[in-house]
Design a protein around this nucleic acid. Structure first.
Lengths: 338, 338
DNA sequence: TTGTACGCGTTATCAA
DNA sequence: TTGATAACGCGTACAA
């Protein structure tokens, strides 16, 4: 591995000058620069990242934290992040938490020690911990999916979850549904909260006041969706439609429904968030709100990179992207039969 | 950030002694060690990774290269790798190549510069390049999915693809199929080669000699599966069953089949590799060979960590894991109707 | 058992 | 415009 010093010696220059060329700094004679560049290329010089980091006390690595890389939504976001990071040649340090707060805290610790240049995170922490953990991260942080609401300034990218949720519910209303239940996410998780709020609002606008038991808070895992739906199905007065706040819980709900021998949408309608079906092979295509996952990743990467600039303003930057509505075949139209 | 020197000064010790305690080295008085440990804990000392790396000229980061993180198979493998790495606190540097050889080469370059401790890779390179690239990586490399065959010594994790493929074909044979076509993967890609070989062998054992045009080499992407199947479907003498060497190509095949108004399995049977359906929501559950993805990741991580030990033998370590056969509803039984 | 002193490869400060 | 030199924080011969 050829070093700065080697190049300098060969050209009878000081390491300083060579270093300046390597780092594209001013104050180098154009001709000298040419000579150095040639030598660098000739020897295929690669700067030693470690030395560089020790000196600058930083790195260009971006840390990414997701709850579950197995969830296609997060996988796509990561792909988007990669695309956004690649041109700037920022490596990506990944951590999968399985929704465990402990693992997330460990990851942040790890990232701190690695002196990552920035963190992009779909946090599973609760609001208090988010604040404590990420204000002490020592680097720019970009949130997505779960965006803290009481943290200022904050960088975040998301869709308008409340509006999206309202849209989904209004679609169900338009199909003649009234008893629209919700399998929500954890309380305090911003996207879950917003989706619940949107659901409430759309119902309210339709003059419907949901009972307390129309809502069940899951944890975004399949099992909780199954549990929630099972519970709903024990009632005498069944819902005609159920919304699930994410894909996995919707899948769990399907299991519960079918386990009871009911059919979708004949006996019960189902709608969801992020029930994306890339292959078009889902047995039942779920009517769903889709987040632009890859775009979310790219924008998050951009925000994170922008925050690297020395004079980047330390103000809140909240980017809201447009969702799409995907009509599936999981909702029955009751208007004809009513 | 408290440093070694600070601790040393506080305890009236030298940095060497403190360093020895931090690194669990011998030759430290038990009592001194206690004092130091207490101080370390009190100050929540975190060693500076960068300084450490500069000194040791290495890191504990493991680089992972996959063609497509969006593919559930790879996502699961990564999860497995993470699980294997977490106990040893090895961070994971991720690179997604989108099957692009250039990006893979860049990733390896990047990893070299980062002085990663090891690389775990599902390579998209061709054999010659694999050899050249990864022998020069400067760290232990563990292959999975695509395992180079002319590289010794090599560390690799895979299933017995030939046997798995034979098993799949024999199942089709048992259902009365004879004209069994194959949508294979790229020539030279070990898993693709092995799957083709297994297909050939099973057919041969049944006394069937496939025509040259029974096989189409795709690139593991959905579009190529669709193209291959479209081509198959233009023939006068249609296949009764088709195998696809991975999930995405199978999905593409489904599209092509349905685009022609044919039904699976009534008009045509389809079988595949890795067409895993975690949610149980696939419209048609494909009969498929499933790789133990998460286990592959864990084993790869273990191999990689084992290779870190200073006196790790530099010999080939090929681990073969068991696949499973998942009977779906995509294969028609012709024995009754024949 | 402990301490001294040097060097890892780079960047940054200052003087030339 | 260039060069000498001092850090950055740690690990490790070697000396004590």
């Amino acid at each position: 591995m050829v070093k700065l010093k080697d190049i300098a010696r060969e050209l009878n220059l000081s390491t300083s000058t060579v270093s300046r060329v390597v780092n594209n700094q001013d104050r180098v004679d154009p001709e000298t620069r040419q000579r150095v560049m040639a030598a660098l290329k000739r020897h295929n010089y690669q700067p030693d990242e470690n030395a560089r980091r020790l000196k600058t006390n930083s790195s260009n690595v971006i840390g990414v934290i997701v709850p579950d890389i197995t969830n296609p939504f997060f996988a796509q976001v990561i792909k988007g992040i990669e695309k956004g990071l690649a041109p700037a040649r920022h490596p990506l340090l990944l951590c999968n938490t399985d929704e465990s707060p402990e693992r997330e805290l460990e990851a942040v610790q790890l990232f701190r020690r690695q002196k990552v240049a920035g963190i992009i995170v779909a946090t599973s922490l609760e609001q208090r911990q988010i604040r404590k953990t990420y204000t002490a991260a020592g680097c720019p942080v970009v949130f997505f999916d779960n965006v803290p609401h009481d943290l200022e300034p904050v960088r975040a990218v998301s869709i308008d979850n409340a509006r999206a949720s309202s849209e989904l519910v209004r679609f169900l209303l338009s199909q003649g549904h009234q008893r629209i239940f919700l399998i929500g996410g954890p309380v305090g998780e911003s996207s879950a909260d917003a989706r619940e709020q949107g659901w409430r609002q759309a119902l309210a606008e339709a003059g419907i006041s949901p009972g307390d038991d129309w809502l069940w808070h899951g944890d975004f895992q399949e099992a909780s969706g199954e549990a929630a739906m099972s519970r709903f199905l024990t009632r005498a007065d069944l819902p005609t439609a159920v919304c699930a706040a994410n894909n996995f819980m919707a899948f769990g709900a399907v299991k519960a429904i079918e386990a009871r021998g009911l059919a979708i949408p004949e006996d019960l309608s189902l709608a969801a968030f992020d029930a994306h079906d890339p292959s078009g092979l889902m047995r039942l295509s779920l009517t769903s709100i889709l987040q632009p996952a890859e775009a979310i990743g790219q924008v998050a990467a951009d925000l994170c990179l922008a925050a690297q600039k020395p004079n980047a303003p330390n103000v809140s930057q909240r980017v809201t992207l447009e969702h799409t509505f995907s009509a599936g075949r999981s909702v029955r139209n009751l208007t004809g039969s009513a």
